[in-house]
Design a protein around this nucleic acid. Structure first.
Lengths: 155, 155
DNA sequence: TATTGTTATACTCTATAACTATA
DNA sequence: TATAGTTATAGAGTATAACAATA
């Protein structure tokens, strides 16, 4: 009996469920975020970048790229869009004239609490079937993916 | 004390972990799939479509679109690429001359077992930290997302 | 009239390569 | 010589709208 194939079959199903859950959650998120009528567009990648800048307060584009797991060119693109929408400012790094620091605009800071509060609401709704205990279980299991990994790469 | 916010905060973290796990898994998959040197390009969306056609043996483009959760126009685009690569054939539906049936080419059928076997291997590797019991637990928890949903939409 | 899949077009995310300014 | 971020360019995935063929 080929045990590795049996393990593999279960493993494929588990990873497939993770993919499907992500697609489902993204779908729900998009719908709910749209109904927020924010004064700027907020896709998944943009929200991710935005929240990272928010947590860091100010951050270099290159550091952001490495944390997001994308190339610097991609950050340039996203930041261009977010700057156009008045969400992000570029400011020169006083300590290194090659570098650019990002920080959120007043407008973004005003909206960010609203976004985060709705994010919590949506997340709670999506997980409504799950008990507190189940949520904690999921949290513990999924955390194992990232144990022992460098913390700079956030995925 | 605002309990809904406390729940929300845990929920956000759980969903965030699911997103991160997906990004991590996709990253691993891409690397390993590349090293397979298949005679055709196989991105995530293409593999997903391919396996769906494979499971169905033959399927209409419109049905495929609804199962994949994308618009028909997107299926046209993906199928164009896969047909160019000699993986998929379009054949007219004998029962409805508006419709097109998709099926895999000989070449694709020859490669599909290899792809699936490597998929199992990769999945098992990615979950190497997880015991049989933990995998089953994850499987059960994540399945709950889709309980009571229409089965046509696979996400 | 409604459905199937297409052409025409466009947007977002992502990337590589070549370049400019600075370190 | 190396690094930070840009311009130039491109490809994949996704979509809307208008349309042709067929039901």
């Amino acid at each position: 009996m080929d045990l590795s194939k049996e393990n593999g079959a279960l493993a494929v199903e588990v990873l497939d469920l993770i993919f499907r859950a992500t697609r489902y959650i993204q779908h729900e998120y998009e719908i709910k975020l749209e109904s927020l009528s924010l004064p700027f567009q907020l896709s998944g990648p943009r929200l991710r970048l935005l929240l990272m800048v928010w947590r860091a307060e100010k951050i270099r584009m290159s550091e952001l790229a490495s944390k997001l797991g994308v190339k610097p060119r991609t950050v340039t693109e996203l930041v261009d869009a977010l700057e156009r929408d008045g969400v992000i400012h570029r400011i020169p790094d006083p300590n290194d004239r090659r570098a650019t620091l990002l920080h959120l605009t007043e407008e973004a800071l005003n909206q960010i609490n609203r976004v985060r509060s709705v994010q919590m609401q949506i997340s709670d709704e999506i997980l409504q079937k799950f008990s507190e205990e189940q949520r904690t279980q999921l949290h513990e299991l999924l955390s194992a993916f990232f144990e022992g990994k460098e913390i700079d790469f956030v995925y």
